[in-house]
Simulated scan of single mutants.
Amino acid sequence: MRFSTKPLARIGGAIAVAAVASIALSSCAANEGGATASDSTESASTLSGTLAGIGASSQGSAQEAWIAAFQTENADVTINYSPDGSGAGRKAFIAGGAAFAGSDSALSDEELAGTFGSCAADSSAVNLPVYISPIAVIYNVDGVDNLKLDAAAIAKIFKGDITNWNDPAIAALNEGAKLPDASITRVNRSDDSGTTKNFSDYLFQNVPEIWDAEPEDAFPYAGGEAAKGTSGVADAVANGSNTIGYADASAAAPRDLNVAEIKVGDEFVAYSAEAAAAVVDASPLVEGRADTDLAIKLDRTTTEAGTYPLVLVSYLIACQTYADADQGKLVSAYLTHIASPEGQSEAADKAGSAPISTTLAEKVNAAIKTIK
């Protein structure tokens, strides 16, 4: 199936300095592709200042769209986002090297129990789900344009238990397909990645007897080809032969990559933004968190028709209260734009993500209003 473009612990100061340097180097890229403050002929905004964000590469395209639109409306604001990965984003935010972080996995209880460099001394941080996207199982296999896989086959491929494309387990799921007698080249993330954690969580929930590694940001098994970031995995799959990988769905279309259908219940389901959003709305919040913390406990074992449980929920992580009140005001304004219908539409148009539901948007906006 071809991708459719239809929207679908505190750490040392050295890391913080490195994080800021990384943003400085990437700020031009983060602001390319859209209007900047100088493109706006008139701005009634009284906001001014600079915000630095670091985090999930899955959010990269959406952040470009959000930044362009927000800077157009706020001529004296500059926002830089460096898509260095979810793990890097959380570490930089904890160290005070970023005003906000993007992460495909929410801050853990252990992380929330620590301190945060940019937050007021008595403040914790909040997880705000603003970006919902399918995780695509992307592939580039000679002579195969329509590939069907279940959780067991995916787990065995990425664990290294299935090593050839014409393996009987794959053939049984793809009756009539001309699968090549060729070795599988599996591509996983080399960096700490929330996309990896979500991908691993899907397999761990569905086939724990095969995928026996607890979900973490680091890919748990050796033997595959490793690439950095969403674009790195997608490029490796696109430029290789008989390859397979996993990535935010927005990475598939620009490279004309095939995307596998996955088995949900008794049916094989093609990913879509709508099917991914349906799983999120049916899942509860993580228990024991503050009312303003909206971390979601995804149920990936659903067999309900029209759902796609291989999904990532990407968060913006911010201080509840900032040490610098002006920075808090800027963060609150930017996050308000992202969570607005306009901001969600910008991400859908640019990245093919699913706009968050009205119910979830109400919770997110209520939480953002408490940021100061």
Rank of each mutant, 00 (worst) to 15 (best):
A325N: 12
A171Y: 06
G49M: 04
T358P: 03
K159P: 00
N164Q: 09
E225L: 10
N174F: 01
N206R: 09
S26N: 15
G194F: 01
F204C: 06
A9H: 06
A88S: 14
G143L: 15
Y271A: 11
K329H: 08
Q63G: 10
P355L: 07
D76W: 11
A333R: 14
I210V: 09
T307V: 08
A218P: 04
T336Q: 10
I317C: 07
E261R: 06
L298Y: 05
E111T: 10
I79N: 03
L360A: 04
S48H: 13
D291K: 10
D122H: 09
V17Y: 10
V279S: 03
I11K: 12
F116N: 09
W66L: 01
Y334S: 00
T302G: 07
S43F: 04
S193L: 05
N127T: 14
N206W: 02
E346I: 12
A44P: 04
A278F: 01
S103L: 13
I368H: 00
A35L: 12
I94R: 10
N146L: 11
K6A: 13
D84T: 13
G288L: 05
F116C: 13
F158C: 01
S241N: 14
Y308V: 05
I244Y: 03
V364A: 02
A226G: 08
S200W: 00
L25K: 15
A227I: 10
D145R: 09
N80K: 08
L257Q: 05
I170R: 01
T195C: 04
A120Q: 14
V264Y: 04
P134L: 08
Y131Q: 10
I132K: 08
Y202K: 02
P254F: 08
A295N: 06
N198K: 00
L147F: 12
K228F: 08
